[in-house]
Design a binder for these strands. Structure first.
Length: 269
DNA sequence: AGCTCGACCCGGACGC
DNA sequence: TGCGTCCGGGTCGAGC
């Protein structure tokens, strides 16, 4: 499931693949609801002949900076960009001026494209953990401002953006924090540890080119269709019934805020 | 403000 | 083997 490291890997790859600087000749949409805004006919018309100036990431959004406006893409669960033809589930196809074709495949159809004039649409998302605005003081203030379980707090993109289920579990394990603890009850030291754990687990994910769970197609793949390697480096996520890499205690799985959650009951309680 | 549920989707996993 | 059902994952909106 694409979270910050997977999206970052994709953005880097798109940049390396010389998609930047190319003009979009035309697009095709095979599943209309993939385009959130504007309506598909307008979308196709507006995107034509637009030059891609640069591609960046904001939280889990891929931002294509066009000559006029921005194409925002959120991959949600199973969205992926591929430079070679996907075997199935293709929802959008973008033809570039040099013969390159960017395919967007999305088995579960949750991903969304928005063609917008300004970046107002993603104003609501919180600080990126790799931004210089992500400081310990601001993080501590955020935690103290909310009385909420730490796991759903970290999953809520309006506070801090980029974390999903995998990396939240990893960060909380790293900082030895119970996912059910309330954000404003953490000790100063725990807040400090968590502040450092978040970029740490995300950086590790990026270094390993993302997490590709399981063996099947619906999983995360990068632009050239390769799997990431971070699934082999996870400490707790989907490792229930296995020993904790830190203390050897058996990792358990529970539900926190309706989400599958993995913890070491020895380190984290 | 924060919680919970349902919706959006599909196919892998599981039970029989 | 084949069928039916459940589940998960990110996000949003509704109702409490």
């Amino acid at each position: 499931m694409p979270e910050l490291p997977e999206v970052e890997t994709i953005v880097r790859e798109l940049n390396e693949a010389h998609v930047v600087g190319k003009k979009i000749l035309k697009a095709e949409v095979f599943w209309n609801r993939t385009v959130a805004t504007p309506e598909v006919s307008k979308f196709l018309q507006l995107i034509e002949n637009q030059k891609i100036l640069k591609i960046t990431r904001q939280g889990k959004y891929i931002v294509f900076h066009l000559f006029e406006g921005f194409l925002l893409v959120h991959l949600r669960m199973t969205g992926k960009f591929l430079l070679s033809m996907p075997s199935n589930h293709e929802r959008v196809r973008i033809y570039l001026e040099d013969g390159q074709v960017l395919h967007y495949a999305d088995q579960r159809k949750f991903g969304r494209f928005s063609l917008v004039k300004t970046l107002d649409a993603i104003d609501h998302i919180g600080v990126d953990p790799f931004s210089k605005d992500f400081t310990f003081e601001s993080f501590k203030a955020l935690l103290n401002a909310h009385s909420r379980q730490i796991k759903p707090f970290l999953l809520d993109q309006k506070h801090i953006c980029g974390l999903g289920n995998i990396y939240v579990d990893e960060a909380l394990w790293e900082a030895k924090i119970d996912p059910q603890r309330f954000s404003n009850t953490l000790s100063h030291e725990q807040m400090h540890d968590l502040f450092h754990a978040i970029p740490k687990v995300l950086e590790k994910g990026i270094e390993n080119l993302g997490t590709s769970l399981g063996t099947h197609r619906s999983n995360y793949f990068n632009v050239s269709g390769k799997r990431g390697g971070n699934q082999y480096k996870l400490n707790v996520f989907r490792r229930d019934k296995e020993p904790c890499p830190r203390c050897g205690h058996i990792i358990i799985k529970l539900k926190v805020a309706q989400r599958g959650t993995h913890v070491c009951p020895n380190c984290q309680y």
